[in-house]
Write a protein that binds this DNA or RNA. Structure first.
Lengths: 345, 345
DNA sequence: CTGCCACACTAAAACGTTTCCGAAAAGCCG
DNA sequence: CGGCTTTTCGGAAACGTTTTAGTGTGGCAG
């Protein structure tokens, strides 16, 4: 005999009472509840999740879908591991566990998600790397599974999402550089296919125009968000007839490759070319020159994500008043040496 | 009506037959099987995992436990995301799915694993960051759950593990530096509390002695495996009376901080001090000077992990003959500029 | 004293699936 | 044609839990 039955037998109580005692139901004598809890602890009983979720239709598990494609791996750095800390701190308060679902890179994310959802292994989902138009969102809406997307998307009506403040970052970077006298400002970003690439460059363009600076397409360098991409960006810049005096990187790791390429050409970043990165990692300030970039707390983002998600789950919504369905997550400027010089005076 | 019942009704067949058809059992007419498969596809039926695993006692899910503590996050970089690719490529052949279980950093890993195991949500486990003596291993052995540990451990008798070839790397690095005329070789590693720190430094010491070089404790710099740690290591070196001519880093990111500190002191890495890193990342070769370090395929490691794990699972062992229970994973030297100079002649 | 209610508990149904067992049909052999 | 095996399927039990409905107390108000 196993499971709750064994526990019940051992206590000479019906299994129903044991279950209610364990789950904190009101109609059980406090005295017996204590006995049950003690016995459970002693025997080491933990409810079998399959049985429980079969009956309840709920699993107490939140899924976080991530993509493990090579591209993503290189770029995401420890983004997700950082975010999980914040996620867990909120979820654990509700006895919810977090499961990361890494989509195989040879499988269609949509199909993978479909399978995971059909299995009924999670109560709610967080999906990341949302595309401009993303079938996964329609799927989740159709199956009525609570979810929140990390990354804005145009599809599926008004679902809940959180995204980084790319516009704010681009605007702030441009403003800062312009105030130091820069007029020719390059930007390194991925292609427009990736939502982020589109948004970032668009915001950059608008900011330039706000300062009355004409948008020059040749200053938009489309490269991958990696060291390799940074190196390549440096390469592209050097080939321009009319070289920029500053460059904005969409990802902080790119600075490593950029620095390398510049050094090879005898150009000193932070003196001959101003550089601003995007998301600060510990390494940003150890580069030479240290990188001016934008700082954010991955943990806080995780907390926000979790709270937003819980607000969409009927069983938990009461504690988390439904705020804005769409959140723009701010980043803070962390000045470094890489753009310290001024062209003025 | 839902689930398999609906499907059976729709086909006017008993649910037992539907189930057997779906699961590829032999005692079902090929004709009816086709009908069932077609109908399932059309309706979009996927077996409810709770019901299935309750009955079968199996979940078709492999758990990969990772720790999301701050320290780990900073150090692991994309180690796990890289490994999952290889893991999945093997597991998916057996219709097994991979689940990452990120242990909250405020919870005891042992307790967390205990909870996850008790839930019966995974059929087997991969645990990482194993300690020198690790309670989790005893737990897994006691509960008879197939598992493989990423990282050697002394506890629990002879369980299965895979670990990187720290001895080989340390020996190779020392040999290389000595052959270039270096005699005072420093090493930056975490404390002996962490298994890795102990093994690495021990292998380093033995290699030195093999060359008849006396082990000098003052050349062992105990720091964290991060940019910050690298910076600090540089700081420590500069304070030594008798300075080393070379340094071995246990982690490639440390080079960024080390370079920074050296540059601040006017010391040029790769000319005044030879530097060898550990695991190569894309960024290693973009550093200035590019870092000599050791290369490995995270994906291949994932494949090896998966195959080793499957060999320990009775249901799959037939395809994966039980080889060595303990595997030392080799790394390959990738020469760079950081140790290119020679002290000889 | 009677009716009512709250309390604490038991018994049993239900969740969705797989699998065991048996039975019907069909084919084969003598 | 009778007995045998093989093929194919249906019925029902089983997995471990939660939850509903019901049962028997005892207290309390009328």
């Amino acid at each position: 005999m196993k499971g709750i039955r064994q526990l019940a037998k051992h206590l000479d109580i019906s299994i129903g009472t044991v279950s209610r005692a364990l789950n904190g139901r009101p109609d059980v004598n406090e005295e017996t509840r204590k006995r049950v809890l003690a016995a459970a602890e002693e025997i080491g009983y933990v409810a079998n999740q399959s049985g429980r979720s079969l009956r309840q239709g709920t699993t107490n598990v939140i899924g976080l879908m991530i993509e493990s494609s090579k591209e993503t791996v290189e770029n995401s750095d420890n983004f997700f591991l950082g975010v999980t800390g914040g996620l867990q701190s909120v979820l654990s308060r509700h006895k919810l566990d977090l499961l990361m679902l890494p989509c195989p890179n040879d499988e269609d994310p949509h199909e993978y998600l479909k399978r995971m959802v059909a299995r009924r292994i999670v109560d709610a989902m967080i999906i990341s790397a949302t595309q401009r138009v993303d079938k996964r969102i329609d799927l989740l809406i159709k199956t009525k599974i609570p979810f929140v997307a990390l990354g804005r998307s145009a599809s599926g009506g008004n679902h809940t999402w959180i995204d980084l403040d790319f516009e704010g970052v681009a605007a702030c970077a441009v403003d800062r550089l312009v105030s130091k006298g820069h007029r020719r400002i390059a930007i390194a970003a991925p292609s427009n296919d990736i939502n982020l690439g589109y948004i970032f460059v668009d915001a950059y363009r608008k900011s330039l125009e706000r300062h009355g600076i004409a948008f020059d397409p040749s200053l938009v360098i489309r490269v991958k968000s990696s060291e390799q991409g940074g190196y390549q960006a440096g390469h592209e810049i050097l080939r321009l007839d009319s070289k920029p005096t500053a460059i904005i990187l969409i990802y902080e790791l790119m600075a490593i490759g950029l620095y390398r390429r510049l050094n090879e050409a005898g150009i000193v970043p932070g003196r001959d070319l101003a550089v601003i990165g995007f998301r600060e990692e510990p390494r940003g300030k150890f580069l030479q020159p240290s990188l001016t970039c934008f700082r954010m707390s991955l943990r806080d983002l995780g907390v926000e994500l979790a709270e937003t998600l819980l607000a969409t789950m009927p069983a938990y919504a009461e504690h988390y008043p439904k705020g804005a369905r769409n959140t723009i997550w701010p980043l803070e400027l962390a000045p470094g040496e890489s753009d310290a010089f001024s062209l003025k005076a």
